[in-house]
């Protein structure tokens, strides 16, 4: 049982509060992704769980045990860093086995466990190399291997894929998700990339300025965002937020509709305007529509859709796909 709980946790730097009192539970065996724009406090939060940042006040428990002031090595966690932080003067095998060596594990056992980890990550052929001689993806695997071998209760990932190119990143996303299933450990993953969050998480935690905006499964966040920040942050291209008269029609201050939930039809018209730009992506066509009453609206249409720049179109939302928000940006429900 390795549930991670943050109770009334705060963090201040020299009197400036970067994390206001925060409560959060990361369920046992979950893959939880902390996501938000840069400066939202997600990395600070992760580093506090790791013990690399001091807690200003509040409490952290891992598996029911209070670790608020415990040494990073004694929390039952392992961490994978953005830069991988591989030890440049040690071989891959020594990198992976270093924590075990410090814990005075018998040599034979270190060797077996390093081999196991290497097998999981397909690193067997590289065990004698120095990190310098590895590719980006291999380094990433070594960093993960270093975490696996300790058999931690909780894995912490700090933007581990942001130094990889797009293709490798997509591949590693799949591998990480599979690894999570195989190991069945709790994982906390920090990223600014909502795609990573959506594809890997059981639970997403959206953060803004140190405050939790919403916690939930990826599709819950996508379908029922609790406020405009989450609505805009999750989903690509981002949700259209219409205000003024259009919103007033639905009894809110703003009304949100995702680009993929709009279609060209006049059944239930919400916006009409001129197509100012269209991106043809093959499978989809992303059209930017300029409307007099609602401003710029983005709509995702079928790729086969013939669309002329300058043509006038009228758009209707799919039923039940409108999100209504009040003046503070809080959700008032669907329409």
């Amino acid at each position: 049982m390795a549930e991670v709980r943050l109770n009334n946790l705060t963090k201040s730097y020299g009197g400036v509060e970067v994390i206001p009192p925060l409560d959060l539970t990361i369920p046992d065996k979950s893959f939880s992704v902390l996501v938000g724009p840069s400066g939202c406090g997600k990395s600070t939060l992760l580093r506090m769980v790791a013990g690399l940042e001091e807690v200003t006040s509040g409490q952290i428990t891992i598996g029911g045990e209070d670790v608020t002031d415990a040494d990073p090595a004694k929390r039952g966690i392992a961490m994978v860093f953005q830069s991988y932080a591989l030890y440049p003067h040690m071989s891959v095998a020594d990198n992976i086995g270093f924590a075990l060596k410090l814990a005075k594990t018998p040599k034979d056992e270190i060797r077996t466990r390093v081999k196991e980890a290497a097998a999981i990550l397909q690193l067997e052929d590289y065990l004698d190399r120095k990190p310098k001689a590895l590719s980006g993806g291999q380094r990433q695997r070594v960093a993960i291997g270093r975490a696996i071998v300790r058999q931690p209760k909780v894995f912490l990932f700090d933007e581990p894929l942001s130094n990889l190119d797009a293709a490798l990143r997509a591949q590693m996303r799949v591998e990480l998700a599979e690894l999570h299933e195989k190991l069945g450990a709790t994982m906390i993953y920090v990223t600014h990339d909502q795609v990573e969050a959506m594809t890997m998480a059981d639970q997403i935690v959206v953060l803004k300025k140190g405050e939790v905006q919403q916690v939930g499964a990826p599709l819950d966040l996508y379908n029922t965002p609790e406020n405009t920040f989450v609505a805009e942050f999750i989903g690509m291209p981002k949700m259209n937020l219409l205000n003024g008269a259009t919103a007033a029609r639905f009894g809110g201050d703003k009304v949100g509709v995702r680009p993929e939930h709009l279609e060209i039809s006049s059944d239930n018209p919400i916006v009409s305007g001129e197509v100012v730009h269209a991106e043809y992506l093959g499978a989809d066509t992303i059209a930017h529509v300029q409307s007099a009453e609602a401003g710029r609206v983005v709509v995702r249409l079928d790729g086969s859709h013939p669309l002329q720049r300058g043509s006038e179109i009228t758009l209707s939302p799919r039923p039940g796909c409108l999100r209504i928000f009040d003046a503070n940006g809080q959700s008032l429900g669907a329409a």
Binding site: D23, T25, S57, G58, Q59, D66, D69, Q203, V215, G216
Partner: peptide, 22 residues
């Protein structure tokens, strides 16, 4: 909802060891 309700077993002030101790 996964946000835990505040259940401070140890209040922040009394539980924190001093900087020197840490």
């Amino acid at each position: 909802m996964a946000v835990a309700e505040t259940n401070n077993i140890i209040s922040p002030a009394q539980g924190r060891p001093s900087a020197l101790k840490r």
